[in-house]
C-alpha cells in the first residue's frame, strides 16, 4: 500500500514539472501557430516598437480571489469550522492557500495547504507544495503535498491529494463537490471527502487505510453571487483502527450534525 502511494506521489510530483509548457507547446502534430509570422515577433521585425513590449494585456496580469467556502457553526456542539481558498496568479500558474480548520472548546486546529497550482489540461490542474497541520492535541505536522484538482464531468469540483511527512507517513484525501440549482439563487451543495493513511503511526493516532468518510449537503440561498447563507447536515464516519483511536479519545466515530453557515467570496 505504502509503496503504491509513494510511487504515485513521485509521479504526481513530476507531472507539473514536465507539463510546464503543455499549454503552449504540445507535440500533437498540429499546425504551427507561428507559421505566418515570417520570423517577426512582437518586438522585432518591420515597424516594431522598441523593446520592452508596451502592450501587455490581461493574459499576463495577475488576478486573485479569496473564497470562504464554509464558515459554519454546529449549534448542538458549539463547534465552528471553516474552509477557505485563496489564490493569486495568472491563468496558468497560481499560488493557492487552501485551509480548513475548527474551533472546539476554545481549541483551534487546522490543516493548511500552500500550493503551486499549474494548469495541466483544459479542466485539470496539478498542485505541489506543503501542508501544515496545527493540532489542538498532539504535535503539529508538516507534509509535502502533491496532487491534482479540477472539474470532472457533471460539474464535479474534484481533487486528489497525497501528503508525505518526515516520519515517512503518507496521507491522502479525495474530494468532490457539486451544486444542484433549484433556482438561480437556491442550490443544494453536496460534498464528499475520503481520507486515509499509508501506514500505522500510533503516536499520531493514524492507522493504515481509509480513515474517514465525510459527506455534507447544504441548502444555500445566494443573496448575491458573492454571499449566501446555508443550512445543512455534515456527516463524519470513521473507519477501522482510526475509529478505534477516536473511541479511545472519547470522540464520536459516526456523527451527523446540523450546521448553519455562510459562503462568500471576493
Amino acid at each position: 500500500m505504502n509503496k503504491i502511494l509513494l510511487t504515485s506521489l513521485c509521479l504526481l510530483t513530476t507531472l507539473p514539472l514536465t507539463s510546464v509548457r503543455a499549454n503552449t507547446e504540445d507535440a500533437s502534430g498540429g499546425r504551427d501557430p507561428h507559421a505566418h509570422s515570417n520570423g517577426f515577433t512582437l518586438t522585432s521585425g518591420p515597424y516594431s516598437m522598441p523593446a520592452p513590449r508596451q502592450l501587455v494585456l490581461a493574459d499576463e496580469h495577475h488576478f486573485g480571489s479569496v473564497i470562504v467556502d464554509r464558515l459554519e457553526y454546529q449549534p448542538d456542539n458549539e463547534f465552528s469550522e471553516y474552509e477557505l481558498n485563496a489564490w493569486y496568479g495568472t491563468t496558468w500558474n497560481r499560488l493557492l492557500l487552501s485551509s480548513e480548520g475548527e474551533v472546539e472548546d476554545g481549541e483551534f486546529s487546522s490543516e493548511t495547504d500552500l500550493l503551486w497550482q499549474h494548469a495541466l489540461t483544459a479542466f485539470w490542474d496539478t498542485r505541489l507544495g506543503i501542508r501544515l497541520d496545527q493540532a489542538s492535541e498532539g504535535e503539529n505536522q508538516q507534509w509535502l503535498a502533491a496532487g491534482i484538482s479540477g472539474l470532472a464531468p457533471w460539474w464535479i469540483e474534484s481533487s486528489a491529494m497525497l501528503y508525505l511527512n518526515d516520519n515517512g507517513q503518507l496521507a491522502f484525501t479525495l474530494s468532490g463537490e457539486h451544486e444542484l440549482l433549484f433556482t438561480q439563487r437556491l442550490l443544494l451543495n453536496s460534498q464528499l471527502e475520503l481520507s486515509g493513511y499509508g501506514k500505522d503511526d500510533q503516536q499520531q493516532a493514524q492507522a493504515a487505510g481509509l480513515a474517514q468518510v465525510r459527506a455534507g449537503i447544504r441548502l444555500r440561498y445566494d443573496l448575491s453571487r458573492h454571499f449566501g447563507p446555508y443550512a445543512g447536515i455534515d456527516w463524519k464516519y470513521s473507519l477501522g483502527e482510526n475509529a478505534d483511536y477516536l473511541r479511545q479519545a472519547g470522540e464520536p466515530t459516526d456523527n451527523a450534525e446540523f450546521v448553519v453557515g455562510l459562503h462568500f467570496w471576493f
Binding site: 499549454n23 503552449t24 499546425r31 501557430p33 507561428h34 505566418h36 509570422s37 515570417n38 517577426f40 515577433t41 512582437l42 521585425g45 502592450l55 501587455v56 494585456l57 493574459d59 499576463e60 491563468t91 494548469a119 483544459a122 479542466f123 472539474l151
Partner: peptide, 20 residues
C-alpha cells in the same frame, strides 16, 4: 470558459507572434 481564458490558436497575445 472555465478558466476564463481567450486566445487565438490557443495562444494568448502574450505568447503570440504577429501575422505577417
Amino acid at each position: 470558459m472555465e478558466r476564463y481564458s481567450w486566445s487565438l490558436d490557443g495562444l494568448e497575445f502574450g505568447n503570440s507572434t504577429p501575422v505577417a
